[in-house]
């Protein structure tokens, strides 16, 4: 959605380049298993699509439509996310191996990667409607996993504590936004916050 939004509007205004950089890093470090294991054609295709879209978005923001990127409001300090997340992925993981640590890093990083975007909206006090749709579906995507994990726990005995805890954190971070989306955007209003 976000790649599409920038492509058709020719502007990167209101989109956090930092969040998009973090997502590119998330998908790169998580999908290194493209080289080591094959799950399904769907799985492989989606991984490639996510990686391609995240890099395309970063390219659009920082290269093609750089002049329209609102860097002055994109001031979240990403090192405050990357450093603790990097440390935690070394300490709490399933297996102390390079691929597994990078996978863990991507899971932890994804859970907080939206913070620069939410921070940006809180600074500017508003967001375009298509941006809010993007954020809603990005949040919904992980929230639906919570339901899926309960299902898989009961019917497949599957339980991945790292993914579940990070998924819960990620969903909680979106809750405030979900509230604004339902109470404002779905009622036809633009998302704008009181000053």
């Amino acid at each position: 959605i976000v790649t599409f939004k920038i492509t058709i509007s020719f502007i990167a205004l209101g989109i956090s380049g930092k969040s998009q950089l973090l997502f590119a890093l998330v998908f790169t470090t998580r999908y290194l298993d493209l080289f080591t294991s094959f799950i399904s054609l769907y799985n492989t295709s989606m991984k490639l699509i996510y990686i391609a879209c995240s890099y395309a978005t970063v390219y659009l923001i920082y290269m093609k439509f750089k002049a329209t990127y609102d860097g002055n409001h994109d001031t979240f300090r990403v090192e405050f996310l990357i450093v603790p997340v990097g440390g935690l992925s070394f300490l709490v993981n399933h297996d102390f191996s390079p691929l597994e640590i990078l996978w863990t890093f991507s899971i932890y990083l994804e859970s907080v990667a939206i913070l620069p975007q939410l921070f940006m909206i809180s600074k500017t006090g508003e967001a375009e409607t298509i941006t809010t749709h993007y954020l809603f579906f990005l949040g919904l995507y992980r929230a639906l996993y919570l339901v899926n994990w309960i299902w898989r726990y009961y019917f497949e005995g599957f339980f991945d504590l790292i993914a579940v805890v990070a998924g819960v954190v990620q969903t909680v971070l979106y809750c405030d936004f979900f509230y604004l989306y339902v109470t404002k955007v779905l009622k036809g209003k633009k998302l704008s916050l009181p000053a």
């Binding site: 298993d33 991984k47 297996d95 005995g157 991945d160 993914a163």
Partner: peptide
């Protein structure tokens, strides 16, 4: 038993 090192989720 699920092999947790083969991550099948996106």
């Amino acid at each position: 038993e699920y092999n947790v090192y083969q991550h099948d989720e996106l």
